[in-house]
Design a protein around this nucleic acid. Structure first.
Lengths: 198, 198, 198, 198
DNA sequence: CATGAATGAGGTTTCATTCAT
DNA sequence: TATGAATGAAACCTCATTCAT
């Protein structure tokens, strides 16, 4: 339904423009150009609406990661580390205000579970990618994937929330790549072109 | 004043036990064993109380980091990487429920600023530590410090919010150390005992 | 129209099953298997629907009373008192949940007027019956009828709403009969078979 | 607390003056001259407020009955029947608008339970009174009391809700007395002054 | 300093009703 | 006639904040 998407979009806009404490159902409805009642036709309560917004956003992020992982399948370690990191930074920075806005949501069991699910999907995509790596092998690809994935989150969050100057995004990304690649190398066993380990 | 500390503690307890949506001044007062009015004797409003709680908590974390950085001053890269990482995980996991509870606070400009300040202090301590490193030199020790610092945040947060199984904490810490050390090595120029670069 | 009856029945079912505060047009429509709109095809508003339900129910009760009164016409006082009382208890207890449900409706001028009309019809039937009584005469048959009629209502209501244990229904009915007959005797002037008073 | 009584009184006034559908917490507060919040300081929700009003009203009625029963203890059957009936009509008619208003409350399990409790207290008082009767004995005084008590309710309710012309209150009361006394006589075994049954 | 009853703005949510299809 | 998405007035209720004691 078009209405649903309009409501979700309006929710983000209010969040971005006014902040969480101004996010009332009335304001969302107004910005969406619908009546309050319409929100409740699709979401049982305000909280569910926020969860839906978060979910949709994270889904987009994860999909981007999954796509990149597909493309990088079978590539060498260096390429993988660089590719995934760049992609991650790119999606997050595509609409930094939106990414930023969603950090405003107070965490609770439900949001945590949504975040966890997204994180897990990311881990899986990366884990599989690591297993496909042409020039390295990992003893615990899933653990490595989760650390790798997690390691990107913190710095990016700091940048988004303003703790890190956003102008230095390029330096920053370069260093994130070093972080990722450095780690992957350290926990991998390299192998030559035949797949034989060295 | 003891009362202030009682109130702060009560706030955390309510947050841990009931969650943000149950955190009302009345409930905090009740658990603290004081009257609502007393809260307003020390904090101009509820928001200020929450900021104080966050601030105090982060302050403890940062102090622990600073202490460790002091102790590790002048040590070799490997020792530094391992020491800081272990210490970070240790403080965060000391009272995981409390760490967890503070993620519940919705972010806004003021919380962001408090978080940024704590982050910055951590960066500085680590930056100085890097500068003191006996066997390596960094071109941009502050940037490196902020990436390093940030990289620890994400995985730990994922563990605290349940996205990562807490039982694997040891494996997890080991890998975090690899992450940190791998990165530091990668972006450093090594030097021998005399300080001469190789 | 069958639809009307379906709606009325659904209304009672919702009332019985969920109570007044759950009685919404949406829920009635759902249980009736029609759309909300259809309810408005037949009733101008929710209130009118409730009045219709009440009206129909009371109508059935009154009809039963009228029928019994017809049958008892010309019979002696004892037979009349016993017959009307038994019949009243019988109809009310036929579907006790439905009788019960209708007490849920908040009284207002319109419901009162419907109740009053039903009561009045009952009074009239009983009044005429009293006038036909073969062995007694009443100075004010209409007043007597209304007291008699009213006297049955209270105890039955108490039983329906659970204030009186329903298991004792038989004892209870016997006593109600004593109540009615005792009263009728007390306010009557007996007469012999010829109609001549004694 | 004075505030509580003010709120209860205001609730009744709104109910009497405007009816149930106009009874909103805001309107009660306004008439009580307090803020909405104050209502919620004493009652968890609107429903609880209504129950309190009903409870207090019924309590007064029952207390009046109990007082009369005390006074009539040990008196002969005729006196008892007449005394209790007159008292019942008198209290109910003392503030007919209030009595009337409380019929507006939709019945539910909680109101039923309050009504049942009041009814039961009335039954007990009357039952004990019957046991003390100087010139009659009852096989099942409790059942008799509940029928007697219940029999008064219906006619009075009909009068209050307008189904019976209120002008005829005296005739009406006389007949109610006949109803009660007729019944009591019918189900009693008379006894002489010594208590010996005849 | 401490208390806690009172306040009341404002938020969330419901649901009878409408009307374009 | 039937539908059911959309409406929006209005209700309930919460809870941060105040202030007289």
């Amino acid at each position: 339904m078009a209405t649903v998407q309009v409501i979700l979009e309006a929710t983000i806009q209010v969040l971005v423009a006014q902040g969480l404490s101004y996010l009332t159902t009335a304001r969302v409805a107004e910005r969406a150009g619908v009546s309050v009642g319409s929100i409740y036709q699709y979401y049982p309560n305000k909280h569910a609406l926020l969860l839906a917004v978060l979910n949709q956003h994270l889904d987009k992020i994860v999909q981007a990661i999954e796509t990149v992982c597909d493309e990088l399948s079978g590539k060498p370690l260096e390429t993988i580390g660089q590719g995934v990191t760049s992609a991650f930074v790119a999606v997050k920075m595509q609409r930094p205000d939106v990414s930023r806005a969603l950090y405003m949501l107070p965490s609770d069991e439900e949001t945590d579970s949504i975040v966890a699910r997204a994180y897990e999907r990311g881990n899986q995509a990366i884990g599989n990618l690591l297993r496909s790596c042409s020039d390295a092998r990992f003893d615990e690809p899933d653990l490595v994937a989760s650390i790798f994935n997690g390691a990107l989150i913190g710095p990016v969050q700091m940048m988004l929330t303003g703790a890190m100057p956003i102008e230095r995004q390029d330096d920053f990304t370069q260093h994130l790549i070093q972080l990722g690649v450095g780690y992957l190398r350290k926990v991998s066993v390299s192998r030559n072109r035949d797949g034989r380990e060295q």
